[in-house]
């Protein structure tokens, strides 16, 4: 069995390159299924990074302006054109993959297996449903399995390999969509889904202005900033900071939840963190039932104090 792993390509330093963290974690899952070929599609991409991933037998590079912005229609056509001979098509569960993989699956007339958190065998997979309140085991009867991998559940593959790199030609331009612009948040902070430390704020913060307090603590700890859905809905934080069922799933070494009550939907996105700290003024907040360390305190006193003493 041969697996096609679609590398996550991100804009990095003005150019495009493989997001090694997400791709390396998906590689660990893909390697359990068979020999892995990695597809790197983008503009100005080399495949050099992907070639170092342990488990990669070959790297396919589709370097074309058509793939510069990850538009779903051309990328799906490219993958469908390459899909013959592969038993599995795999990608890390990122916004880009969630956009494209279901399109690929439908073009191949197979179901999608999203957010796979465990691999039982080549046909059988575990995935969370109902915001992580249940884990379902499903067996696919489809000829090709198309799956996205929940990266929080897998260690990153080592980068000591040296797979051969092959160029593949671009598929045609379906001409259905066009790129207008990216508004990427400029930040020196680590990326949320791969950060070793995350500090998140919830509705208890009270306002967009006061959310700066959460950011200061994150900066003092060298952490990424997250937010609960309640904080996003209230306009305190942008949606791409959202941790939870409808946002990002994180599993850092240290997760600090500030003013977060602990709604089920939020817990689904962070309960695999190694150490969880909760700071909340409400001693009955459900977050304390899953936190390793809980502190009942006024946020506006405790958070600045922690920021000062931890830096």
């Amino acid at each position: 069995m041969t697996v096609l792993l679609i590398a996550e390509v991100s804009r990095i330093d003005g150019g495009s390159d493989v997001n090694m963290d997400a791709t390396a974690k998906a590689m660990t899952a893909a390697a359990q299924l068979g020999e892995v070929h990695v597809l790197v599609a983008g503009e100005g991409v080399t495949g050099d990074g992907a070639a170092t991933l342990e488990g990669a037998a070959k790297v396919l590079v589709a370097d074309d302006a058509l793939y510069a912005n990850g538009l779903a229609e051309p990328v799906a056509d490219l993958v469908v054109g390459l899909a013959g001979g592969y038993s599995h098509i795999v990608a890390p569960s990122t916004a880009a993959a969630k956009n494209v993989l279901p399109r690929i699956a439908a073009l191949l007339d197979v179901m999608i297996l999203p957010d796979v958190s465990g691999i039982v065998d080549a046909d059988t997979f575990q995935r969370p449903i109902y915001a992580g309140n249940a884990i379902q085991t499903v067996r696919s009867s489809d000829a090709v399995k198309v799956l996205t991998i929940r990266t929080a559940g897998f260690e990153a593959a080592a980068t000591t390999g040296s797979a051969p790199i092959e160029a593949v030609s671009a598929a045609g331009d379906p001409g259905l969509s066009s790129f207008v612009e990216d508004k990427v948040a400029e930040s020196d902070r680590p990326e949320l889904t791969s950060a070793g430390r995350v500090v998140s704020g919830g509705r208890g913060i009270g306002s967009e202005e006061d959310f700066a307090m959460v950011e200061k603590l994150a900066d003092a700890l060298g952490a990424a900033v997250g937010a609960s859905r309640a904080a996003v809905d209230s306009g305190y934080a942008p949606n791409d900071w959202q941790v939870g069922q409808t946002g990002k799933v994180v599993a850092p070494e240290l997760y600090v939840a500030v003013g977060i009550s602990g709604a089920i939907q939020h817990l689904a996105g962070m309960k695999d963190s190694k150490v969880i700290v909760a700071i909340n003024k409400d001693e009955d907040a459900p977050i304390f039932q899953i936190a390793d360390y809980g502190l009942v305190a006024d946020l506006f006193e405790a958070v600045p104090e922690l920021t000062q003493k931890a830096s």
Binding site: M111, I135, Q136, Y293, L295
Partner: peptide, 29 residues
């Protein structure tokens, strides 16, 4: 196309300890 073979409760995380102050929190961490 997918047969559900099992549905299970997720692993439950146990509650930890409450700390009394920021200093105690930093010390524990």
């Amino acid at each position: 196309r997918l047969a559900v073979t099992a549905t299970a409760e997720p692993d439950v995380r146990k509650a930890g300890v409450m700390v009394a102050s920021v200093d105690e929190l930093i010390s524990k961490l």
